[in-house]
Design a protein around this nucleic acid. Structure first.
Length: 316
DNA sequence: AAAGCTACCCGCCAAT
DNA sequence: TGATTGGCGGGTAGCT
């Protein structure tokens, strides 16, 4: 994990905490986390740090995490960019958090790739580096060895994703539980972007509420449109504008989210839950579940319920 | 797992 | 003239 003057503390701390807490079934630590910096002392706006490693550590790292800087327009030292490009050339995995994408961009690592950053900085990134395809809607983007993620909390999502990639959903799910985080958040950044003033944003709220209350029943696009008092086409557009997704996608996500809740808090059978959330059968639930969360319902339940019965001896 | 089919999404355009 | 709406249809994601 790279530290540099002016970095955002949380962007640095989150990967450190999450990765170092990752362990397999036998309790073995899965990552060797090292914080490195150019100089012995790093100045943040609230703390001064003395990271134990220097930049040459970047030559050994399998994965390099680059935090965001408080001022993205501030130039990072050339030597740092040099080490990053060098690391990229030898095939190291490099991931940025928040405005750390600007550092990767400055090193030329994002040219021609899809990337994300904090939604407030997305325009600036796109303007400054036209060769990057900036997507402000997602929490993170995976290009294989080059990854970028959105604002501070998305560091959680990114790290959990990496752990899942490296060691599987079980390990990641345990970590998520420790951090009191969902394994995967649906909806991307767009759910946090304010699309319009609050009063107006309410226009779809009653319909959304109704659907959430009646998940069991069928929610065809046309039915929703009628309930909202607008045409199908207009509903689709309004939905995109206010909610950030499409109606069908939102309903589907809502069903899975409710299923998660029921798995965590009840002893209902998978079949019962499927019908409760409006999914045709247990197999449909299963498929939707693995597709969006990367775990099976049973696994999810086991992991999240085990926590309750054990107490939280290992929790934070 | 494969396949057919339905419903959805979204670009486009005309109407308001 | 610009903004919004509603309908159409092709391509397709997802359900049975």
């Amino acid at each position: 994990v790279l530290a540099f003057d002016g970095m955002v503390l949380a962007d640095l701390a989150t990967p450190c905490d999450l990765f170092s807490r990752a362990q397999d079934a036998t309790g073995r630590e899965l990552y060797d986390v090292r914080v490195c910096s150019q100089n012995a002392r790093v100045v943040g706006s609230h703390v001064q740090l003395e990271p134990p490693y220097r930049l040459d550590e970047l030559r050994r790292a399998d994965t390099i995490i680059v935090p965001g800087g408080e001022d993205p327009s501030r130039d990072v030292p050339d030597v740092l960019l040099l080490e990053l490009t060098r690391a990229a050339r030898r095939g190291a995995r490099i991931a940025s958090v928040c405005s750390g994408a600007f550092v990767l961009a400055a090193a030329g690592l994002l040219d021609g790739l899809r990337a994300t950053t904090h939604w407030l900085a997305a325009d600036a990134l796109a303007r400054r580096y036209p060769r990057i395809e900036v997507d402000a809607n997602v929490l993170y983007v995976d290009n294989g060895n080059i990854l970028t993620s959105a604002g501070a909390a998305a560091a959680h999502d990114l790290c959990l994703y990496l752990v899942r990639r490296d060691f599987g959903a079980q390990v990641a799910a345990y970590l998520a539980r420790c951090a009191v985080m969902p394994l995967e958040r649906a909806g991307g950044q767009s759910q946090f972007i304010v699309h319009r003033p609050p009063e107006e944003a309410l226009s779809l709220a009653p319909v959304l509420g109704y659907i959430a209350q009646n998940l069991r029943s069928d929610h065809a696009l046309e039915t929703i449109a009628r309930r909202a008092g607008m045409s199908v086409r207009t509903l689709s557009r309004q939905f995109r504008k206010e909610v950030g997704t499409t109606p069908a996608a939102w309903v589907a996500a809502e069903r899975v989210r409710r299923a998660q809740l029921l798995l965590e808090t009840t002893a209902m059978s998978i079949e019962q839950i499927a019908s409760e959330v409006g999914l045709g059968s247990a197999s449909v639930l299963r498929e939707r579940f693995t597709k969006t969360l990367g775990t099976t319902p049973q696994q999810y339940r086991r992991v999240f319920q085990a926590d309750r019965s054990q107490g939280s001896a290992r929790a934070v």
